[in-house]
Amino acid sequence: MKTIVIGVIGADVHAVGNKIIEYTLTNADYNVINIGVLSSQEDFINAAIETAADLILVSSLYGHGEIDCRGMREKCIESGIGDIFLYVGGNIVVGKQDFQQVLDTFYNMGFNRVYPPGTPIDNALADIREDLGE
């Protein structure tokens, strides 16, 4: 069974979507480690190391996603889990920005999958199946 670490990053307390993601991924037969809201990059990475996780799925609903996620891939590399899949989704930036630009920013930061606001979790689930080969 593949392991996925999920949580809400930064000073963000949106807990509802987090529960929906946990429910969906658990039903899809993944071992879900939910570290909850107000989580730091280190919390995600530590949990991923201890559980030998295959993927980290970061949620950010309050618009500060770019600041909160900066440097996360580098920290993963330093921590010995440089190859782990990094996903991010939610309202990851504020205002009406061109989402192609936002995508580029997050891809450059080392994220493998980046989702715009309003993406159903089922879309991400299809990507997870493809990336983890299950």
Binding site: T3, I49, E50, T51, A53
Partner: peptide, 10 residues
């Protein structure tokens, strides 16, 4: 110690 159950064992 080391690793949650089902997690890292290496």
């Amino acid at each position: 110690a080391g690793g949650a159950n089902g997690g890292n064992k290496e």
